[in-house]
Design a protein around this nucleic acid. Structure first.
Length: 247
DNA sequence: GCGACAG
DNA sequence: ATCTTGTCGC
């Protein structure tokens, strides 16, 4: 793709993202009270090494036992390029389709909340991929990123102060706020596991608040990455290994 | 303009 | 995202 085409595409995505951002809802919702949640969804995508072939996987797990009760793995051809800040434009439609299939085929397994591999409102437009997906599907979502998405112009950076705070996280549940220069709390760095050294970056996606988001992530975590996302990751890789055997 | 940049 | 061994442990 040429530089010009890429810029035009990005302009188009910017407008769409602005409209989606206006619809992101972070108000508290009684229906997402943690102790009433019995089904949590997870999404991930894996690629065949040097290709555009990928597997999109949606899983649904029960709470509190974290058993997988539904899996949908689909081979897809990725056409959109990856631009940081616009992750959702690559994958949201595929995830949306997977959720539609679930709604039609096994409505009884439709999750009350989705965990998404990426950010929610921890994003320069307050509309990362988790929020994007939440809005187009009109469901509660939570963003969980393995790396900090830095926004230098807003003071969210992996600087020494940040590293210092990270080094003080010792036990599961330890956390600190990710705050902009304007004191807006956009997310939480959370230690999800006792033996982890690095936190995961949790942010509101859609239709839930940050405290609830963190609580759900902790309830779903046995490894560093919360189980719904981890299972989606494992199963999408497995799916590809079976169909594209390594030499 | 340059560099920073979830997956 | 992807290339990667063994190793420790719920």
């Amino acid at each position: 793709m040429s530089e010009v085409a890429s810029e035009e595409l990005q302009d188009c995505w910017k407008k769409e993202q602005d409209e989606l951002a206006m619809r992101v809802n972070t108000s508290y919702n009684e229906d997402i009270a943690v102790n009433r949640i019995s089904l949590v969804g997870g999404l991930d995508i894996s690629f065949v090494k040097g290709t555009d072939d990928a597997c999109i996987t949606l899983v649904v797990l029960t709470l509190p036992d974290l058993k997988v009760v539904y899996e949908d793995s689909q081979l897809i051809k990725m056409v959109a390029l990856y631009i940081p800040g616009y992750l959702a434009f690559r994958e949201a439609d595929f995830f949306h389709q997977a959720l539609q299939r679930l709604r039609v085929k096994h409505k009884e397994f439709f999750p009350q909340v989705m965990l998404v591999d990426g950010n929610g409102v921890l994003h320069f437009k307050r509309c990362g991929s988790a929020s994007h997906l939440g809005v187009i599907c009109d469901i509660p979502t939570i963003g969980v990123a393995k790396n900090l998405y830095q926004m230098p112009e807003e003071g969210i950076v992996r600087n020494d102060e940040h590293k210092q705070k990270v080094s003080q996280l010792n036990n599961k549940g330890d956390q600190f706020e990710l705050k902009t220069n304007n004191q807006d709390v956009l997310g939480m760095a959370v230690l999800s596991n006792n033996q982890a050294t690095n936190p995961v970056y949790v942010s509101v996606g859609h239709k839930c608040n940050l405290e609830t988001a963190v609580e759900i992530v902790l309830k779903c975590s046995v490894a560093r990455v919360p189980e719904p996302i981890r299972q989606a990751d494992i199963r999408s890789r497995q799916f590809l290994r079976e169909r594209f055997p390594p030499e």
